[in-house]
């Protein structure tokens, strides 16, 4: 079992950089992500529709699937005890097959709340060739000690 904390709050400092994650996007990436998120709209699987009706060069990643990518990027780093509290994102441009998307992240907050829950804020970017496509800010709970488990919190003890 791999339940030991990979990352605890005292090990994180404002300004820490997450490892970059590059990923080569294919049409399969886009279609798998759209169907897994039950998004049947044609611009996420039909290139002719995307080009003729949306005026873009190809099918493109849908928003709910990007949320899943951001979650994966963050929890790859925190391990399974990292628990998402809040995520805000802004879409600035589309991601197409043939693009290499790159995720980057920087810690911008490390705090404990009144209930003793440890929180970090992370600024995450998804860019292609240096152009920002989606910006995301996430708030995650991390274990404060090796024995702590943010998933055990609920009600008044969970204030995301």
């Amino acid at each position: 079992m791999t339940t030991a904390p990979r990352l605890t709050l005292p090990a994180v400092t404002v300004g820490d950089r997450l490892p970059d994650l590059p990923y080569d996007v294919t049409a399969t990436t886009v279609v798998l992500g759209a169907l897994a998120s039950r998004d049947w709209r044609p611009m996420h699987h039909d290139k002719d529709f995307a080009v003729d009706r949306n005026g873009v060069r190809d099918i493109f990643l849908n928003t709910p699937n990007q949320a899943a990518w951001f979650e994966r990027y963050l929890t790859d780093w925190t391990g399974p005890r990292g628990r998402l509290g809040r995520m805000t994102f802004r879409m600035k441009g589309s991601v197409f097959p043939g693009d290499t998307m790159v995720f980057t992240g920087t810690v911008d907050e490390v705090v404990s709340d009144d209930t003793g829950c440890g929180w970090i804020g992370v600024d995450v970017t998804l860019s292609v060739g240096g152009d920002l496509k989606t910006s995301c800010h996430a708030r995650l709970a991390l274990p404060t000690t090796d024995d702590d488990n943010p998933w055990s919190r609920s009600g008044d003890r969970w204030t995301p």
Binding site: M1, T3, A36, S37, E71, R72, T75, P80
Partner: peptide, 25 residues
């Protein structure tokens, strides 16, 4: 759908793949 989603984004978080981890956490 959980596995389809994890597979689509190559999310290997054991919470979603290993029931012992899910039971524990």
């Amino acid at each position: 759908y959980v596995w389809s989603t994890c597979s689509a984004v190559e999310n290997g978080n054991p919470l979603f793949w290993d029931d012992d981890v899910a039971d524990a956490l």
